[in-house]
């Protein structure tokens, strides 16, 4: 293989690998900006992956629309999971870390139980209609970049288009300002007459839906089938990405690409016969995240009220 083809391949794989991480991380940015630390992303992604795939499976006759319906169901199932989170975290003011752990365990168990119920213990892989590659007209004709950037499935483009949208929402709308204030100084939001609970719930539901869609991407676009535990820690990587991206949507997309590169390289290293163990690349995101947290790579400032339940009577 010549060097250009290799680079093109790596760039394309980076973008594909980054997409589910980016989707989940964008939601998590909003939730954390509102002061809710959702460590149940992994669970929400898994739920989304299962239901997205189940949706596409049962609507398979609709051919073109089947994966879209699947993705919709994936997002909705993530949203429902987030509603469960919100009930315990915001209504009952429970500890968000414990709830997040519970949601992840719940999803790990639930998806496997559903999967075995539907397809039995051995569970042969059931392929479903999935998102096909969509070459952007004209742009995909550009040499080198055309294939690497504009020959993906449609969700990839939508995910990256969402980045400026979330940025605009957080920094240039009144609602976005309030969401951010919720995470910094919830009392102030209460004082001006907005409901902290409501704002946090909405942010959390958005995060859940995005995580669900991110999971749906895995079982509808990455591969056309579901396997239990197929997220393999991507939810926690999304968490790392949010921190690495310093709670900013655009920096977060950069972080997602960097981590996507890690995935792309680890798949290709052995193929090229390079003498570095691929696990170093899998470890890197988490180690980098630690370095960022410790302030060795620029200082990251978490939202002040992150993870603290808001009690209006205090």
């Amino acid at each position: 293989m010549d060097i250009i083809a290799i680079l093109e391949d790596i760039l394309a794989a980076t973008i594909r690998g980054a997409t589910p991480l980016l989707l989940a991380a964008l939601g998590e940015v909003v939730a954390q900006r509102a002061g809710v630390i959702n460590i149940g992303i992994e669970g929400m992604m898994l739920i989304g992956a299962l239901f997205g795939w189940v949706g596409s499976f049962y609507f398979a006759e609709l051919l073109f629309f089947a994966p879209w319906i699947g993705l919709l169901i994936a997002g909705f199932s993530g949203l429902v999971t987030a509603a469960l989170f919100a009930f315990f975290a915001i209504r009952l003011r429970g500890d968000q870390v414990v709830i997040g752990t519970a949601i992840t365990l719940l999803a790990l168990g639930f998806t496997e139980v559903v999967y075995v119920r539907l397809f039995g213990q051995t569970g042969s892989l059931q392929s479903v209609p999935y998102f096909k590659q969509f070459d952007v007209p004209l742009l995909s004709q550009i040499p080198f970049f055309g294939d690497a950037l504009f020959s993906h499935n449609i969700i990839v483009y939508l995910a990256f288009l969402l980045v400026p949208c979330v940025y605009f929402f957080l920094y240039h709308t009144q609602l976005g300002l309030r969401v951010r204030a919720c995470g910094e100084h919830p009392k102030a939001i209460s004082t001006v007459g907005s409901s902290v609970s409501l704002l946090r719930t909405i942010s959390l539901l958005f995060a859940g839906a995005m995580a669900g869609i991110g999971g749906g991407y895995l079982s509808l676009a990455d591969v056309p089938y579901f396997t239990p535990g197929m997220t393999t820690g991507r939810g926690f990587i999304a968490l790392a990405i949010v921190i690495f991206g310093k709670w900013h949507p655009i920096k977060t997309s950069g972080a997602a690409l960097l981590f996507g590169l890690g995935f792309a390289l680890d798949n290709r290293f052995q193929a090229f016969g390079w003498d570095i163990q691929y696990q170093w690349f899998l470890m890197l995101p988490f180690a980098l995240c630690l370095a960022v947290l410790a302030g060795f790579v620029g200082k990251a400032e978490a939202p002040l009220a992150l993870g603290k339940p808001y009690d209006p009577s205090e």
Binding site: L92, L106, G109, Y115, Q121
Partner: peptide
């Protein structure tokens, strides 16, 4: 349970999560 009833044994993870959620619920 898996051998005799056919339910996936990962149902225990679900059970653990439910216990955790009840712990949270009870402290409220």
């Amino acid at each position: 349970m898996e051998a005799e009833v056919g339910i996936s044994r990962q149902v225990t993870l679900m059970m653990q999560a439910i216990i955790l959620l009840f712990v949270i619920g009870s402290s409220a």
